[in-house]
């Protein structure tokens, strides 16, 4: 018991001091919090969406719209460089360089555009139902334009890699009158067919159709030339070779048809996408303009 009373007498003054310390700390913390809050309020924008937010969103709309116009020149530059590297056999490192520079530039472009759309989605002005609806349509349509160009990049790469690569030799550098033509043709055709098969990887519907049609044409020719090779005697070989030669005459028509189908399909697809994007853009522009006018009218009444 004596021990306990001794303990109390010793511990009493520190307890009183610690209470004071607590008060000081609390007061200090409260002061700092108050100062912090004050700073935060002073710096943060007003929570209520204002006219500036509309102006800002409209500027971002223009940025996204303008950025879409960059795809054509950039894709054109990439496909020109890539096709040259492939058709002139610049070599693997050179092809890789075009892919990593010119193609990656467009990949980054698309990422930046998607980021811009995401950033727009955070605008406080989207609390307004009408603006939000119009923006969502805008975002969907412009995302479609971005996605189209991303896909175009894949298609272009695949088509050049196959049709522009091993397949190009088939009907340009082989000598039809040569003794070994059938043999050369079958060999090149097999390389071309292998390339076409890999080119379908990741391709969209239109491109797959194109590649499949080209594949069918070349497979047909290849099989005819193979029959020439399989012929047992000279006469049979001669007649098969003549039939195969005649079939070659149709090949340009077949290719032209495949190409026209492809071009029409992709053109239609793209112009529809562009059309929808343009209409979503002008609609969104109108909605923002109206919202701006409302703000101006409100501030006019206030005065």
């Amino acid at each position: 018991m004596g021990d306990k009373s001794l303990e109390e007498t010793i511990s009493a003054p520190p307890r009183a001091r610690s209470r004071r310390t607590v008060i000081i700390v609390v007061a200090l913390v409260a002061a700092l919090v108050a100062a912090g809050l004050g700073t935060w309020f002073a710096l943060s924008r007003p929570a209520e969406p204002g006219r500036a937010d509309v102006v800002r969103l409209d500027k971002h709309r223009m940025i996204v719209d303008n950025s879409m116009n960059l795809y054509d020149p950039l894709v054109e530059q990439f496909s020109g460089r890539y096709s040259n590297a492939i058709s002139e056999k610049a070599g693997q490192p050179e092809e890789e360089k075009v892919l990593s520079q010119d193609r990656e530039r467009i990949v980054r472009e698309s990422q930046a555009n998607r980021d811009r759309l995401e950033h727009m989605a955070e605008s406080p002005i989207l609390k307004d139902q009408a603006v939000a609806e119009s923006f969502n349509r805008f975002k969907d349509q412009y995302s479609a334009v971005i996605a189209y160009n991303d896909q175009l990049l894949i298609n272009t790469t695949n088509i050049y890699r196959s049709v522009g690569g091993p397949c190009a030799a088939l009907h340009s550098s082989l000598n039809v009158a040569s003794e070994t033509y059938a043999q050369d043709y079958v060999k090149s055709a097999d390389e071309c067919l292998a390339a076409l098969a890999t080119a379908k990887d990741g391709a969209d519907a239109e491109t797959t159709t194109l590649l499949t049609e080209v594949e069918a044409v070349i497979r047909g020719q290849r099989d005819k030339q193979q029959e020439v090779l399989n012929s047992k005697d000279t006469f049979e070989r001669l007649s098969k070779s003549m039939l195969a030669g005649l079939a070659l005459l149709d090949i340009n028509d077949a290719f032209a048809k495949a190409q026209t189908t492809y071009e029409t399909a992709t053109k239609d697809k793209y112009s529809k996408i562009i059309e929808s994007a343009n209409s979503a853009n002008s609609d969104f522009e109108g909605v923002l303009k109206k919202s701006l006018e409302q703000f101006d009218a409100a501030s006019g009444e206030g005065k």
């Binding site: 500036a52 937010d53 102006v55 800002r56 500027k59 971002h60 223009m62 940025i63 303008n66």
Partner: peptide, 13 residues
């Protein structure tokens, strides 16, 4: 143009 618009957006008040 895109950069100018980005600056305008930042300056909007």
């Amino acid at each position: 143009q895109v950069l100018k618009d980005a600056i305008d957006a930042e300056l909007a008040a």
